Simulated scan of single mutants.
Amino acid sequence: MSLASILVGIASYWTPMLARRSTRALIIEGDLVIRVRQGAFIIIQCTEEVAREIFTGPEACLYLTGSAFSTLLVWIATILVMTSIVLFGNCNWTMQAVIMVIYSLLNGLYCGVLLLPKRWFWDMSRYHCDARTHEECK
């Protein structure tokens, strides 16, 4: 059962696939303007690299182990979970209770990690967001 969690964790490790410029032409400094559904405009002052990374990048990711191998690892983990459920059914009541308590504690710890500050997990130091709204628009 523990091996299944490790395999799914390895299979789920990914990094974003960022868009790259195909030309080395000089870029004129400017702002990025986005029109939203309600007719409002969002003006973003940033460099071309940041705009490309945030707004025009493809919605794809690069898996550490490759896409096909990640799928295989998840499939193996699923087989391991199903096998462990059958094998745990043959345990006596005391062993089943111990396993239940251990996995309940682990799930509680996983939920507790979600309560930690996001700055511990996400490095947003390269971005500075300053929300400005005109007085008549508030």
Rank of each mutant, 00 (worst) to 15 (best):
G108P: 01
Q38W: 12
C111N: 07
F41I: 06
T71N: 04
E29V: 00
R20K: 15
A25G: 11
E135W: 11
I10G: 00
L105I: 10
K138H: 07
I44K: 03
F88C: 13
S125D: 13
R20H: 10
S5T: 02
K138Q: 10
I44P: 01
G112H: 05
M17A: 05
T133Q: 11
S125K: 15
S12C: 08
C91W: 15
V101I: 15
G66D: 09
P58F: 12
A97I: 13
T133G: 00
A68W: 02
T56D: 02
M100G: 06
G30T: 03
Q45D: 05
L109V: 12
E136M: 09
F69D: 03
T15L: 11
A11W: 04
W120A: 01
V74T: 12
W120Y: 11
C91R: 08
A51L: 02
A77E: 06
A131K: 10
L80K: 14
I43P: 00
P117A: 12
R132C: 10
G66R: 07
C137L: 13
I99K: 07
N92L: 06
I28A: 07
A4S: 07
Y63R: 12
D130F: 15
Q96V: 09
M100F: 13
C129Q: 08
S5E: 07
K118R: 10
Q45I: 01
Q45R: 12
A19I: 05
M1T: 09
E49G: 00
V74W: 08
E29L: 03
V33N: 04
R37S: 08
T78A: 15
K118Y: 09
R126E: 11
P117L: 12
L114D: 15
I6C: 01
G57Y: 00
V86R: 10
S2D: 15
I43G: 00
M124Y: 08
G66K: 09
V50C: 00
T15Y: 13
S2M: 15
R35E: 09
G66H: 07
I54F: 05
T83E: 05
S2I: 10
C91E: 14
M82E: 13
L106D: 06
I6F: 02
L3V: 00
S12K: 12
C46R: 01
